[in-house]
Write a protein that binds this DNA or RNA. Sequence first.
DNA 1: CTGAAAGCGCTTACAG
DNA 2: CTGAAAGCGCTTACAG
Lengths: 342, 342
Amino acid sequence: MSTGTGGRRVTLADVAARARVDRSVISRVLSGDPRLLIREETRRRVLDAVRELGYRPNVAARTLRTQRTGTIGLLIPDYANPVYAEIIKGAEAAAAERDCVLLTGSAGAASELDSYLDLLGQGRVDGLLLAGELTSKATLDGLTADGLPWLLVNRTMRGEARHVVLDDERAAALAVEHLVSLGHTEIAHLAGPSRADTAQRRERGYRASMRTHGLVVRPGWTNRSDYTAHGGYRAMIQILDAGERPTAVFVANLASAIGALHALRSRGVAAPDLMSVVAVHDLPLAEHLWPALTTVRMPLRELGQRGVELLAQVGPDETVREVVTGPMEVVPRESTAPPLAR
Amino acid sequence: MSTGTGGRRVTLADVAARARVDRSVISRVLSGDPRLLIREETRRRVLDAVRELGYRPNVAARTLRTQRTGTIGLLIPDYANPVYAEIIKGAEAAAAERDCVLLTGSAGAASELDSYLDLLGQGRVDGLLLAGELTSKATLDGLTADGLPWLLVNRTMRGEARHVVLDDERAAALAVEHLVSLGHTEIAHLAGPSRADTAQRRERGYRASMRTHGLVVRPGWTNRSDYTAHGGYRAMIQILDAGERPTAVFVANLASAIGALHALRSRGVAAPDLMSVVAVHDLPLAEHLWPALTTVRMPLRELGQRGVELLAQVGPDETVREVVTGPMEVVPRESTAPPLAR
DNA sequence: CTGAAAGCGCTTACAG
DNA sequence: CTGAAAGCGCTTACAG
């Protein structure tokens, strides 16, 4: 790609010539150097020249000199997952707030992860946010060896103490409480994959909340799927075909819930009359399902935002274990109702 | 953010010292300079030193020197729109193919656009792909003045001749032909907003195809919405409440179709028995709607990929008007069927 | 109050 | 075949 019709870019030297000062003065005025003593008149000349020439500092030169890129990396597993879309939005906003740019990349497979990290290479980002399941301990060690600060987002890892997560236990408790308040006592859980620690935390929250309300988790009522619609379909079918049917189910994520609704339709089990369904993550899609899905709204944007803030604020060798306390609530729709009297 | 525990990074000087050659030799070996004559033994020493030290060139220094960033910008309106998720994936893959990184940013409002372009600032990207409706002629002129090559993706603009788009006319024709082959003759069109030129092209394709098949477009049978579920709901209601009901509707995008299905349910019009529905864009969501939605699959990934390729290959002052010829087909699901005999 | 100088880590035209 | 040198455009410690 050539430079195009724009001609030579404006550099500090151009501005300095126009304002009749040294380049260093321009730089210090623009960066707001507090130790700079300058006459008001000179400052004005500088700012005028900057404006008139449309000067903007060259990022590469600044990075080379300061060793800061002003860029934060964010690794996600898949752009098509709307959960990450929300996280990205929050991270992007927080980055812009700090005059930083967000460099998002996706890696669905380990080989993609490697080549992405390779591309980030030396000095493309000041730090890296890692969302999703893919990251391994070896990867993190590699980043640390490279001197690149990192932070796990929406997940934890054994033996590592740098993460920011949501309060998944509380989300599960809110869902169970919503069902209990409608009169349900027979509540199943369609859990996520055991390798996902969001899934583990949601299941823990479900069990704890059931206990708190004196409710029994019957055998066959917690079934794991893989956070996909297809997996949710199969897991729901199994729950339906086991012995005693629950009157409600708490589903660990939205994709599984879509499959679960499908399973209910194909078995002729009316929702919500014969089965109430509530799932984690209130995404735009939820209200367009049939029946419109009751959800637990999670502060996903705040999660992305907080990730950027923590990465910028906390030293690379310090411990970070933060649970984002953003707005979290049940969004009631058509898929939950009191159980039909038997 | 500080440098962390990683210590000083490995530079060319380190590698040169170890391999006992000048820094310039390392650089030329690594870049595969064809004019470099070097003894096999020396080359091996160089490559060994590179590997042993884990040397990777510093991006900022290289960029400063070469005036190439190895980064391509992509501006989208919204990460939550799965259409863009597909485009991003294609663009990311094509960028990686060329050892480039993709810097995606979203801007839903004009002010966000400005601040994003400001952040890209001087020299963060080698070129910019612009998707969505937001970009104005003034913005493009500004980019051109800055010497930054750009390319419109999935849209055209009057007076500009740098874009890559899909064959929306053909997509519409495929949808109409699918309905005609099922026996429909009364086919309505739920169009997108007139400001979106994808919408214009789909409507043009619909009208042309209806004419080709000798079918009449009755008054009230083409209704515009805004590409949202809510808009699709209202537009579908209007079509239903107008005089003669069609037996099928071609919907310009998936979000509108979700609203249209909702409208059909709320008016008690069974789909597909009393109304067949087919929409543009085959996204994962389509098969989980109720009824599962028949769609036209568009080569969105190929669109993103081609965008990156064209931006890299075509000079900034040259004209580009390309229609991506990727796989495009009707994906039949439950929402389309022959019309019930009256 | 302002300027001159060094140096960040590369690449490349040139010298030998 | 390999090395020395210049320079990309900044920032900042230092000098005056």
